[in-house]
Write a protein that binds this DNA or RNA. Structure first.
Lengths: 239, 239
DNA sequence: CGGTTGTTTGAACTGATTCAATCTGTGTGG
DNA sequence: CCACACAGATTGAATCAGTTCAAACAACCG
């Protein structure tokens, strides 16, 4: 889906929308149509939310670099990350208010367009509609897998699964390249429904089991097949 | 969304697709267009899966009566229900294989159409496309709420939340009518990511706290506002 | 350097699981 | 109408995975 280069730290900002979409699998002609849509470039810093939950979301958003999360907060203040958007992926507009907020995981650049402009472009290009339909279904599929992850797997499997998914979505060659882990342990906890303390212990465990080797945020996969097994990760849902 | 009558046991089967969709909020003219699409009626019994995970899903499916679940099974055999479809709701076709299976919660009737027929009807009626787009976004929203539920709430809140959501999706008047709970405790466990043993204990707790009163599968809500609080249920995500 | 964010570790605690047994309700066939 | 089977609900006891609280440590940045 994405070039492995996107797994590195922050590229210089200002990647054109067109290039981002082409990398995400959109045919060149369609990318051009979308590129013509009026849009502006915004730089997102982690830590502070970019959009709050419960607000209108009449805008399209495409991630050109970095990593962006959708999150919700329970009334008792516990935070859950419900979806991720890698470069080339986007957050589509919706009628009414969105129940989720948006926040960058690492420094990111996003392109923002108006909902109505987007709608027109899509209406004029049935092929685009198909393209986004597929993206939505992929996101649904990932969401379902996340439910299995938080609902039915133990804490080790949850963290391992997230690592496998992240490496795969980055398009990483796990045999040769290390993963630059973009998440803090607190963020992994917010994705996998645990505490950061436990995430830390799981990491230590995975390392003790010689499945991974950490060097700061860099993770080398020492036994990928075994990690897949521990994570019960089957990449089919990412197709 | 649905008449409260659908909360009762199984109506006689064979509700026309058109009526089902109109009840679900689709304008009459559009319902007629979809009704003209070739489709067949199928009766689903609980307990045995209707569609297995990992199979092609080039069909549309609308629930006319009963209650239907999408589920996934982890490689270690643990089952997770990832979405529900109440009467009037549907499962849209997708390219390639679906990672989830489909199973009835209670005896249900569904209408099945071919993916290509559905696509044509939708292409010819842009209003339909908008309608389904909204439905998809609602489902996404529900999915996110479920992630918060399994990821961040304690077992009592999870079960309470499911009860609140179910009553709301049935369009029940909680002050006057009881909810006919369609789920076995095992199914509630499969939705909320717990064991059936614990679900049983949570029910006993809720009853001891005088939040609900059970009579077989029938649940009366004795203190709806307090139940909402316990569940941290805020119905906005169902809009 | 000092401040801030993130990681690591220990000890005590607890919510939920596991395992196993029992009980209840419903439908079926004789 | 009873006996039997079967699915589901209920309960208890033992165990354990993950949380909570608290403190120390490391890395980064202006």
């Amino acid at each position: 889906m994405n070039s492995s280069r996107t797994a590195r730290r922050e590229p210089t900002s200002g990647v054109p929308l067109k290039d981002t979409l082409i990398k995400a699998g959109l045919p060149t002609t369609l990318a051009a149509a979308l590129d013509a849509m009026p849009h502006r470039n915004v730089h997102l810093d982690p830590r502070r939310p970019f959009r709050e939950p419960g607000m209108p979301r009449n805008e399209v958003m495409f991630v050109t670099s970095g990593l962006v999360a959708k999150y919700k907060t329970d009334s008792s203040g516990r935070r859950q990350i419900v979806a991720l958007r890698f470069p080339g992926e986007g957050v589509l507009p919706r009628e009414g208010n969105a129940s989720y907020g948006i926040q960058a995981i690492v420094k990111s650049d996003v392109l923002i367009g108006k909902s109505e402009d987007f709608d027109h472009v899509v209406e004029d290009n049935p092929e685009l509609s198909k393209f986004f339909w597929r993206l939505v279904q992929r996101n649904e599929s990932i969401g379902y897998e996340w439910m299995v992850n938080t609902g039915r797997r133990d804490s080790t499997a949850r963290v391992a699964h997230l690592l496998c998914e992240t490496a795969t979505r980055y398009g990483l060659d796990v045999q040769s390249e290390p993963l630059f882990n973009p998440f803090t342990q607190q963020q992994i906890a917010d994705i996998t429904g645990q505490t950061s303390v436990n995430v830390n212990r799981v990491f230590a465990d995975l390392e003790r089991q010689k499945l991974i080797k950490r060097n700061g945020r860099e993770i080398r996969f020492l036994d990928w097949p075994e990690l897949l097994r521990v994570a019960s990760f089957q990449p089919g849902y990412l197709d």
